[in-house]
Design a binder for these strands. Sequence first.
DNA 1: AGTCCACAGGAAGGGCAGGCGA
DNA 2: TCGCCTGCCCTTCCTGTGGACT
Length: 404
Amino acid sequence: MFMAQTTIQEIFSDYLTKKPLFLNKSALGDNYLPENIAHREEQIRQLSIILAPTLNQEKPSNIFIYGSTGTGKTLVTKHVTSELNKIAEKNNIVVSVFYVNCKMKRVADTEYRLLAYLCELLGKNVPATGLPTDSVYKAFYSAIEERKGVVLLIIDEIDALIKKIGDDFLYNLTRINQNLMNVKCSIIGISNDLSFTDYLDARVRSSLSEEELIFPPYNAMQLQEILRERSKVAFSADKNYDGVIAKCAALAAQEHGDARRAIDLLRVAGELAERNGDTQVDESHVSQAEDKVDSDRILDAIKTQPKQTKAVIYSVFLKLKENERLVLTGEVYDEYKTACKKLSLKILTQRRFSDILSEIDLLGIINARIISKGRYGRMREITSSVSDDLRKKVILCLKEEFYF
DNA sequence: AGTCCACAGGAAGGGCAGGCGA
DNA sequence: TCGCCTGCCCTTCCTGTGGACT
């Protein structure tokens, strides 16, 4: 007991006396808005031009923004709209900006939930279930109407939502101004999927993408510059981080120039160094960070899933461990049934099971493709999109959660 | 050319939790 | 409180399908 206490005291006093690696870790966080956004000058300029009529109380065009993950779409949009807000406020112009991310599970992943969430943002509470959708629309319209002036709705990861619920919702949104008297409402849709508009009805497509902006991926040099800017704020100034930054940038550039990944790598490398008690971040920390960033993302995604989905993931991974490379739908369903019996969980039908497989495919946890084995049937061929180590970790993690 | 497998995935509907108005 | 409505999750029933086999 006494030993333990000294150890705790040692840890805490060590922490206090040691010079911290991080000065301001939030500069490497998800919600950090830097003052200068490097290599996005053109996109910022274009977006500002499109949104400028707002300041005359005119409705700006609806905008569609494309680009793969970590190309600065959300950041630029938030930056430009917040600048717009500042100027509007200074000149007593009424502009309201609302941001929703459709990937938020059980918050904005159906038409009803998204509308309910928007109502909440607009200051009107709508119950989580029970109301007909058209009355939620009415609540939404009246909440917007109270705003006056111009309302900008930023809908992030809109491709994920539309693939799930179809484009009727977008059709209603594009006609929103017909239902509004005092307010002009514009939509800024953000999509990771460049071919997303293929899914849309022609009418929706033309009215939603009155303007289009494309965000190209960053190259390694650009990523380095971004990281250098951030590291100036995040870390103590007396150390040299060039090697570390170069490595983070190179790794992220391989993954279609994803700046978020580069920043995550740098942050996690710093955290690992700090935890080890090292005084300097070096390239070995980045290598460790690479594994950790991937596994944390997948583990987080899995932890927030409902029980049945977890059981399906568990069965897939367990079967993959046996079969090494790939598994087929039928095999996994059998494994799933066994797992459910063990867990005294209700066994869902193959139909529902098939839908859950599609969902975890969309989450990027597995890769499934439909193959035909001739007279031996048509089925999904499932491979893992995560490393063996991580798969083992997930199995252990779920075992712990399920108590066996 | 026709058959047949083992599913994929669409359509319809049931049960449940929860809201609303009378 | 009650009857009726809704969205969500799920089941049941069904049609469609690519290609090995006959």
